[in-house]
Design a protein around this nucleic acid. Structure first.
Lengths: 112, 112
DNA sequence: AATAATACCTATGACTCAAAGGTATATTTT
DNA sequence: AAAATATACCTTTGAGTCATAGGTATTATT
């Protein structure tokens, strides 16, 4: 976990959470949003993001609208109904995980 | 991240934190401790743990004392000096990571 | 004209961990 | 006494996840 690498398993949840809040986003926008929102602490690489988006789409979690802006292609992703359900589930799983991890990692400093 | 799988990247930090608190532990003890302390929410599998311990030892993070208890072998691991430094570093990295993750995941519900 | 920014993409490989198997002894249950 | 469970170690294999490194094309900036 050197540098600013993500913990593996958290990427898709981050993406889904952003889509839940923003309604719809395109890939490049997601990379920038995460970079800005975390002050550079998280960097979603495109090599990780695009395959993830494609998989989520294939799984029926996301749906796409293609638009052309300034002669550049944009693929806007948004949650499907199934995706909305899955997102809620994933977020609460992550919440639970973090809670447990904090209990192990940050608490119980040995007194004796 | 279905079921109770760990986020990849957190296992060794968990192990090091336990050793920091407990002084010394053996492998099997670590698996039980994590299971008990998290009420079964985290399960450190042996197939993941033993190779991790061996790597940490090879990297000079841990050192071993072998003891025979009830005719059974035990390998007690403890942090080296280098390991103590590395552990502090890893824990604060993880702390920082979780803090950032929480900002992304749990905060800023869109208001309008 | 060159560079950076925007916007998409894929192939490859490193790394981490889980699943599944193995060995051996001690304890408990049947 | 036999079977099952618990203790304690281990390895091989493979799935999954992501970063690295490359690629294309357009627009904006220097």
């Amino acid at each position: 976990m050197s540098n600013s690498n993500l913990f593996k398993g958290s990427l898709s949840t981050i993406v889904l959470k952003l889509l839940k809040e923003e309604g719809r986003m395109y890939g490049y926008e997601i990379t920038q949003k995460v970079k800005d929102a975390t002050k550079g602490k998280f960097k979603i690489t495109e090599g990780a993001l695009y395959p993830t988006l494609h998989k989520l789409e294939a799984d029926g979690i996301l749906e796409v609208e293609v638009e052309k802006v300034d002669n550049r292609l944009r693929k806007y992703y948004r949650l499907t109904e199934k995706g909305t359900t899955e997102t809620a589930k994933k977020i609460s799983e992550l919440e639970e995980y973090i809670k447990t991890l904090q209990e192990v990692i940050f608490l119980k400093p040995k007194i004796g």
